[in-house]
Structure formats: structure tokens, C-alpha cells
Design a protein around this nucleic acid. Sequence first.
DNA 1: ACTATTTCCTGGATGC
DNA 2: TGCATCCAGGAAATAG
Length: 282
Amino acid sequence: MPELPEVETIARGLARRVTGDVIESVWIGRKKEPLKSPAAEMALVLEQSRIAQVHRMGKHIVFELDRGAVTNASHGRKTRISAKAQWIVHLGMTGRLQVCEPQAEIAKHTHAILRLSSGRELRFVDPRRFGRLSSAATAEFHATGIEPLEIDAEHFAALFRGRKTPIKSALLNQKLLRGVGNIYADESLFRSGIRPRRRASTISHESLAKLHTGLQDVLKEAIALGGSSVSDYVNADGEEGFFQLEHRVYGREGALCRVCKTPIKRVVIAGRSSHYCPKCQK
DNA sequence: ACTATTTCCTGGATGC
DNA sequence: TGCATCCAGGAAATAG
């Protein structure tokens, strides 16, 4: 399940492989489900666009497109119109973007194929269809929330002021912070000694400062290790990450806390599995 | 204006 | 072996 570190890893891998490539044609398999923009509109935006840049915003992968040469038919000669556009991909739970040769077997649940001028294809595969594709030709895509690696301690603490919701839910709320998912919410709460059910507004400024540091540390460490490979996550080169080996609470129900040997507990908060150490976290 | 709950979707694990 | 049931979870939609 790709969260900020996994999406960052994937975006960097894609940037290395497809930057500069031109999208020559597009095949879109479904009319709705993964699509947020109409299929025809998306194809129109993508085709003949040059991929100028690939980067991450929250859990979104954003392809910055440069739609260079456009024929102005009214004068019968080519006029260069510089137009910017974007292709925005959210991988959901099981979404994957693969760069491959055209003869490579088309995986089950392939929903979109972009044919590139380099002769390769960029394919979007998503069995569970929680992923989303959208395009922005005029209005620039604007993700909600603030990047957790860019926010300072004061603004971070202010996000939770007056919120009665459990801190775990607040961390998952993409309108506050963007990119934090279940794994890194649990891991950052462990690092800062806060139980996931604690009401956000009741947490001391000092603890929130620890949470700010803990969250930034865990995200940076995870990016350095290529993300966490749980279930079927792989990066743009099909390689697994290694941060799952560093998890201190996530997915460790019943296993002993690495700090105090107390068995890790699992509770459900807002429909999400939440893991914590009952001794280390208060 | 918030917060809580439900819904979407399929593969893999589990149980009988 | 086969079939039914449950579970994972991000974010949008819905309800309170």
C-alpha cells in the first residue's frame, strides 16, 4: 500500500525512466472506475505531450506535461503554442505504473497504456481499482494539506489544535497533512510515545513536537530504504523496499515491543488497524 | 464546521 | 478440493 515514502520512491524511478519521452498515443480500458476525468479528455491531454517532469504530491504522482508543437490550422502553418498540462495518478492500494516493452504480456487489470516515443509503454495496472487517474489541462492540480516533510513544528502543532478526533485519524486526514497513511501514522505515534486513540487536542505541545520529529524521521528513513514492501508493493523497477524490516509496531500484533518486550496491541480506529505498545505509548 | 460511518473493489487467507 | 466468508485500506460520499 503506497504511502508517501513508497510514492516518492516510485516517482523518482519513473522520473529517471520517462522524463523527456513523448506520449504518442493512449489506450484507456475503462470509462469510469479509475478515471476522474473523462477518458476522451484525458487522451486529448496526454497524446503528443512531452513528459517534462515526474514528481510526488502527497500520495499522488504528478506528470508535468509540455504540449509543445501544436498546429494552428487557420494560417496553414505550424505555430508553437506553449501549453502546460498534468497527468495525476493515485495508486490507491494496489495500483502500479510499469514501464515495459510493447511485447511484454499485458497484466490482468491493466486499465491504461501510454505508448512512448522511445518505443516503450507506460502502463497503469490496478486489480482493486482504488487507484485514480486524472488530467488537468487548464487548472493546475492542487492537492490538499501540507507536505509533512516541509511543515515546521509550530504549524504542525497548530494542525491539531481543538480537534477532538483521535490523533491517528488526524494524521490520516489528507486535508491536514498529505501523504501519511496507516503504516507511518502508527510508526510515528510509537516513536513519539502517543497512543493512537488520544484525542488530538489533549496532546501536550511537547508531545506534538516529538510527533513532528518522529514523523519526519520515519518518512526520511523509509524513503532512504525504498519504502515498505507489505502485500505487493514494488518500485518502478519492480524492486521491493526494505523499510518493512524496520517497522516497530505496524503489522506486529502480539509480537514483542522492540524497546520493552511488551506484546504489541492492535485496535481498530475509524475502520483502520492501529498498532501500538501499551507500555511505551500513553 | 467537524466528526463518524459507510462504500467502493478483488486477491489471499481462513474455516468447514 | 471446493465453496463461502472475512479482511486489507485511501478517499469520497453520506449521515449525524
